[in-house]
Amino acid sequence: MPLQRLRLPRTGSRTQVDAPGEVPADVAADVPAESTGARRGVPAATVGRLPLYLQALHALADDSITTVSSQELAELVHVSAAMLRKDLSQLGTYGTRGVGYDVPTLVHEMSAVLGLEHDWPVAIVGVGNLGRALAHYGGFSSRGLSIAALFDADPAVVGTEVNGHVVHAVDDLAELVPARGVRIAVVATPAAAAQQTADRLVAAGITSILCFAGAALRVPDGVTVRAVDLSSELQILGFHEQRTRSAVLGPLRPPARLTNGVSR
Rank of each mutant, 00 (worst) to 15 (best):
M1R: 11
L3D: 01
L6H: 03
R7E: 04
R7I: 09
P9F: 13
Q16Y: 13
P24L: 14
A25R: 13
S35L: 04
T36V: 08
T36N: 10
G37Y: 06
A44T: 14
T46S: 12
R49T: 05
R49P: 00
P51S: 06
A56E: 03
L57Q: 00
D63Q: 14
D63S: 13
I65P: 00
I65L: 15
T67L: 05
T67K: 06
V68P: 05
S70F: 05
S70Y: 00
Q71C: 06
E72G: 10
E72Y: 02
V77W: 00
A82V: 12
A82N: 07
D87G: 06
D87L: 06
L88C: 03
T96D: 01
R97S: 09
G100W: 01
P104H: 07
H108T: 14
L114M: 04
L114I: 11
E117I: 09
W120E: 08
V122Q: 01
A123G: 12
I124T: 07
I124A: 04
Y137T: 12
F140V: 10
S141M: 09
I147H: 00
A148Q: 09
L150T: 09
A156Y: 07
V157E: 14
T160R: 15
V162N: 05
N163F: 08
L173G: 07
P178K: 14
A179L: 04
G181S: 02
A185V: 05
A185G: 04
V186Q: 04
V187N: 01
A188H: 04
P190M: 13
A192D: 03
A192W: 05
A193P: 00
Q195E: 08
T197W: 03
A198Y: 00
V202Q: 03
S208M: 09
L210S: 10
L210V: 15
C211Y: 00
F212D: 01
G214Q: 05
A215L: 04
A216Y: 02
L217K: 03
R218V: 05
R218T: 14
D229R: 07
L230H: 11
E233T: 15
V248S: 10
L249I: 12
G250I: 14
P251Y: 03
P251W: 00
P254F: 03
R257F: 07
G261R: 05
V262C: 06
S263H: 09
R264F: 07
